[in-house]
Design a protein around this nucleic acid. Structure first.
Ligand SMILES: [Mn+2]
Ligand SMILES: [Mn+2]
Ligand SMILES: [Zn+2]
Ligand SMILES: [Zn+2]
Lengths: 141, 141
DNA sequence: GGAGTTTTTGCCATTTTATTGCATTTTTAC
DNA sequence: GTAAAAATGCAATAAAATGGCAAAAACTCC
């Protein structure tokens, strides 16, 4: 995804194309892992270009999330993590219980369980908990 | 699960059997849904018997979690949610995007996706996002 | 059952993460 | 370029969780 695409996504969603939204969306798309709002700020701080206020990042993420351009993952950590929706396949995530790392996994869409009457499913999320390679190696360190 | 069982679980895990741990464990086991620490406090407040301090509830939950008697779920909300481990089958959870309700679903264990080398899976969690019956009905309210 | 030891608790302060209010700035439509 | 609407920055505030420490409770051993 290149920048013209991002601008277009934002405009198509009915919002104004602003430096903050573009920066956040670009940052999340460039990241290999889902990021927290503070991690987004950190990345943008270390990158040439406009660095929005932390609150603006929160609001940009909220807007992008409300308009289906990014999604918030279910996490065990304290901070929310977001990833771009893009046109990728649905995929699972791994969460390390020791270091908190969250990474994307290639994974088949799991089957949807039966829901109670009246309930509507919109998304299925698969989270694998465990130890990452580094943490497993150094667990007794 | 009755109280002697709870006491025994705690003792077997190598901890002291305290009013707070018993109350928290009993509360989570009696609840039909996973609860946040504050919800646990609320329940205990509305129940005859000892009401521990909020911080004590956090610490009791942490201890129970560290010793495998309760588990923390991956959630999209801000507060953590816990449920008793007990001897139930692994099951999925539904999360309503409007009211935040989190409820247990009967569901088959999804297949474990392939992990990167060195990674170890310890638990698989399936989260269904959508609208609950009440929120679906009143979405335009 | 009571003294001694260790663990746990309650309270207060603090941290982390996120939200709100409002004046100023930016974006967009014309 | 101007005007209207939307987004931003900054300060204040809220929500959720954690840390320090003295007092209280649980356990062990007799
Ligand atoms: Mn991902
Ligand atoms: Mn459950
Ligand atoms: Zn790790
Ligand atoms: Zn609902």
């Amino acid at each position: 995804m290149n920048d013209p695409d991002f601008s277009r996504c934002i405009r198509d969603a009915g919002g104004r194309v602003t430096a903050a939204r573009l920066a956040v969306l670009r940052c999340l798309a460039a990241a290999e892992e889902p990021l927290t709002p503070d991690e987004v700020l950190e990345h943008l701080t270390q990158t040439p270009g406009h660095v929005p206020d932390r609150v603006t990042i929160y609001r940009a993420i909220d807007w992008l999330s409300a308009h289906g351009l990014v999604r918030r993952l279910a996490t065990v950590g304290r901070a929310a993590r977001y990833e771009p929706v893009e046109d990728r396949e649905a995929h699972a995530h791994f969460q390390c219980r020791r270091c908190g790392q969250t990474r994307c996994l290639p994974a088949p869409s799991p089957p949807l369980p039966a829901l109670p009457p009246g309930y509507v499913a919109e998304r299925v999320e698969l989270v694998i908990h465990g130890l990452c390679a580094a943490c497993r190696a150094g667990e007794n360190a």
